[in-house]
Design a protein around this nucleic acid. Structure first.
Lengths: 409, 409
DNA sequence: CAATTAAGTCAATTGTCTTGACTTATTTCT
DNA sequence: AGAAATAAGTCAAGACAATTGACTTAATTG
């Protein structure tokens, strides 16, 4: 019956799902709290002491967790705290940018152990794939020389590149990103490396980095505005990155809006005014310039006369964007991050004050409405590397189910 | 240890969580597909035939599911399809509006079985609570007279009212909603009715209704724009309603924007231009008028000369809102619903065409970018009633956990 | 030094899904 | 018409993971 239209249903679960979830919950709790005893874990997770003991024992056997010195802290038997073992797992991240590709190797706690960088030849995937695979291979070897056990404990490869994906774009993209966006990157990388591969857009990757080791660490509802070559937002909702129906959620740079002061003009994408791309255009900088960030920084510190005009327009958009995102998502905090010099980030957030009024103006706030996150060209690559760690170890609904709803693309 | 700061951790789960999830998955599958055999369910949920048989047997014993006539459809033993039993569960919904309160009783499949309405006395909760409890009581009796088994099978009470909640608002609200918003409504209703109570804002309730029995039925990623007295959005993400950190997600009417044609004015809330409130103001209608909707409808059909001005301003905002929401969420569809006459809804969506370009313009769409949902003053009350059904029977992450992260408020 | 408190273990139990063989009922092929 | 194939569904035993309650260990308190 019902052989015409497919049956729509969610996946069921079983004891394996239960067990997998509980393992993830333990790891998450240790990541968030640094160190906890078995009794602490039992209380925090609502599992029994015995269950926690069994899982911790297993995690210790697997080399993901280790015990620390016994702690005497009051009556009763002293407790043995446990913490994550950094060398328990490793992941590689790959950032594909317009002119350059970067790799990062991280461990279970998010420490960066190796980096790699290479220029991306013009010509898109046809010529670029080899560059990527070579760079990944090199980083893998670098990692193995630092941490010999890493090859056995590599949980995956995370890729990050500018979105949006799956849009039959106009080919007016001057930097061949459209070719990459419609290229079967996941399959190619999986075949070329033998690793499980995930794919995120830049802003999602930045948010993943903030969540693992940055300002969104332990925050369940956060919006990361990523100001890079383009403009995007990484949406952390209920403790998970939200991807949307097609993996394109958060592409806020493509929101159409009117420039400041205009009234009856055509709407244009937000990122025409608020992005490094627009700044480059104004400052007549070549986005392919390897010293781009230094040059932007020079313009900031040297108080380039063209900067205030850009800043005014960008801040105008960003103030509205923060207010709108707060109103739409009711997050605990908004984080501004991106591949821009810290000085510029500070300049922007200062100029954004006072923030527009919103329902985020609550007396019971524990986090600031707007924070600065990673301001580093490597942030996306770090987020790319954090993705496999998150995918493998963070508690999520889909990790419980027998049929996993597609992981990050 | 760690007795200073509380330990942050997610809840673990156990076999009960597994079982509860699988039961929910069965019910969800039957709701979405109408009727399915045990073998169908096993395939769709990835559970074994045996497991499905056990659960179905239990659900049948509980009166939630019933078998239908055997179906011969090819080789092999004929299958016995099952479907939900409408009388398997009931819920009451309560809408608190500015001048009126409404109740709805629904069954497991969302059929409306009883309605109630009462004027809400001025004076806020102090005088209003009795009105609510009396109306709920009356609806409960009406329901019991139609479905005698309903009292034993009442799964909860859903309340809906305009948000936002928990904001120390200026008391300039002319209709006492602020008093309700800061009143301990949940506790009062729970104590007064003995039922499990949930609370949503208007737009969340409308989205819940669309999801159970409306245009968002079976859609995992949908944005419901609710055009009522105010303007809000119900966010259906990953098949669940998203609430934000404080239950105020989706209050898009409070986004600050510039009126059409303005350029250097102060930003004002969107809903000053796109809401029934703004239409009432323009048409000089009393929002408390019980015939409000008829009068608005008259203005639409009678082509009131003041209407085009409002329409132009509202459509200007809504076109931008749809484009922005699509860009932010990457949903499968956007649904316009609200307590407005269908004719007006049609007028608005027609005037919104063509929609602004966005990344929702994909060739592989299966749903229209913009649809009309419920246009009915009762939509919010229906959504309120749908909430306990959804809370009790829909598969969700939190239903698996030992410690439930707070249900709808 | 006894009482209290708390961490953690042990062994048996329970609940839930899985496994593999089996039964039943229908269509298709020879 | 009869055999083979196919599919739905059941039966009974098994596996897995969390729970239970009693117990051990080791500290502080009085």
């Amino acid at each position: 019956m019902n052989d015409l239209r497919p049956i729509r249903a969610k996946s069921g679960t079983n004891q394996e799902g239960t067990s997998a979830h509980n393992r993830r919950v333990m790891i998450d709790a240790l990541r968030l709290n640094g160190q906890l005893s078995r009794a602490d874990l039992a209380r925090a997770t609502a599992l029994t002491k015995q269950t926690v003991s069994n899982i911790i024992e297993e995690l210790e056997r697997d080399g993901l967790v280790q015990s620390l010195a016994v702690v005497r802290s009051g009556r009763g038997q002293p407790s043995t705290p446990y913490r994550l073992v950094a060398e328990g797992a490793f992941a590689i991240g790959l950032q594909i940018d317009r002119h350059v590709t970067r790799t990062i190797a991280v461990d279970l706690v998010g420490t960066v152990l190796a980096r790699g960088e290479a220029n991306l030849p013009v010509g898109g995937p046809a010529t670029g794939v080899k560059t990527l695979l070579d760079l990944i291979e090199k980083t893998r070897r670098d990692l193995a020389s630092i941490a010999p056990q890493s090859e056995d404990r590599l949980v995956g490869l995370g890729a990050a590149m500018p979105g949006p994906f799956g849009i039959e774009g106009e080919d007016d993209d001057p930097w061949m990103m459209a070719a990459w966006q419609n290229f079967p990157l996941l399959e190619t990388l999986a075949a070329g490396t033998g690793l499980d591969v995930g794919l995120q857009n830049d802003s999602a990757a930045a948010a993943t980095a903030e969540r693992l080791v940055g300002a969104a660490h332990g925050v369940d509802h956060a919006i990361c505005i990523y100001l890079g070559y383009g403009l995007g937002a990484g949406l952390i909702l209920n403790g998970e990155l939200y991807r949307g129906a097609n993996g394109n959620a958060g592409e806020i740079g493509m929101i159409l809006s009117l420039p400041r002061g205009a009234s009856e003009q055509e709407r244009t994408p937000l990122e025409h005014r608020a992005s490094i791309a627009s700044l480059c255009k104004l400052l007549e900088l070549d986005p392919a310039d390897p010293d781009l960030y230094a040059r932007i920084d020079a313009a900031v510190t040297g108080e380039d006369v063209r900067l205030p005009g850009w800043l005014d327009a960008a801040v105008y958009e960003l103030r509205a964007a923060v207010q709108a995102l707060e109103t739409i998502f009711d997050p605990q905090t908004v984080i501004l991050c991106g591949g821009l010099p810290p000085g510029l980030a500070r300049l922007i957030t200062d100029a954004m004050q006072p923030l527009l009024p919103s329902l985020a103006d609550r007396r019971d706030r524990s986090l600031p409405r707007l924070q600065i996150g990673f301001t580093d060209p490597w942030a996306v690559a770090i987020g790319a590397a954090a993705e496999p760690i998150s995918r493998t170890f963070d508690p999520r609904f889909s990790a419980i189910l027998k049929i996993r709803t597609a992981d990050l693309s």
